[in-house]
Amino acid sequence: MVRKVALVTGGARRVGAAIVRSFAERGYHLVLHHGHSPDEAQRLATDLETEHGVRVLVVQEDLADPAAPARVVQAAVSAFGALDVVVSSASVMEWRDFDAVTPEDWARTEAINLRAPFFLMQAAGRAMPDGGCIIQIADHLAHETGFPRLMPHQITKAALGQLVRAVADHLAPRVRVNAVSPGLVLAPDDLSAAATARFLRDVPLARSGTPDELVEAIHYLVSASYVTGTVLRVDGGRHLRR
Rank of each mutant, 00 (worst) to 15 (best):
G132F: 00
M128K: 10
A90P: 00
V56G: 06
T46V: 10
G161M: 14
D202L: 05
C133T: 06
R14I: 13
G10H: 12
R55H: 07
P173N: 08
L30F: 06
F119H: 13
I155M: 12
P69S: 07
D189C: 01
A158L: 13
V77K: 00
M151W: 14
L141I: 08
G11E: 04
Q74N: 13
V222D: 02
D105I: 01
V86M: 14
D62C: 05
W95N: 15
R176L: 10
R201A: 15
V92F: 03
A194S: 10
M151H: 15
R13F: 04
F147I: 00
S91D: 05
V185I: 15
I19A: 01
D62Q: 09
A116S: 12
L160I: 14
T50C: 01
R207I: 07
T9G: 03
A138D: 14
R21C: 06
L160G: 07
S192E: 09
N113S: 11
G11N: 05
R3Y: 08
R71I: 05
P69K: 02
D212L: 08
T145L: 01
E94H: 06
G35Y: 11
F147A: 12
R198H: 10
V56H: 11
R201E: 15
D202H: 10
S223K: 07
T228S: 13
M121S: 11
L200G: 05
G11Y: 07
A224C: 11
A64T: 15
L63W: 09
V87N: 09
R108S: 05
L48Q: 07
G16A: 11
P152C: 00
G131R: 08
S223Y: 00
T196S: 12
L63Q: 07
V20C: 05
V59I: 13
A75D: 04
K157C: 04
R198I: 01
S181D: 04
L114Y: 03
L214P: 00
R149P: 12
V180C: 08
R238Y: 02
A17M: 12
R238T: 03
L32V: 07
D202R: 13
V87Y: 02
D202N: 14
E216C: 02
K157G: 01
V2S: 13
G53H: 11
A100M: 09
R207E: 09
E216P: 00
H239T: 06
R55F: 00
A82P: 09
R126Q: 12
I135K: 07
S37F: 13
V54S: 00
T145M: 05
R174S: 15
A179D: 00
V5K: 06
P173A: 10
S78T: 14
L184T: 12
F119T: 15
Q60L: 01
S225A: 12
R115F: 08
D84C: 14
H140F: 09
T228C: 12
L186C: 03
R207Q: 05
A24R: 12
D139M: 10
V54I: 09
L32I: 06
S91T: 09
H34I: 11
S192D: 10
I112M: 12
V2M: 11
Y226V: 10
V164K: 02
E104R: 11
G81D: 04
D202K: 10
T156G: 03
L141F: 13
K4A: 05
P204G: 13
V227L: 02
V215H: 06
A79T: 11
D202S: 13
A67M: 07
T156H: 06
P117S: 15
P188A: 01
A107E: 14
E40R: 09
H36R: 12
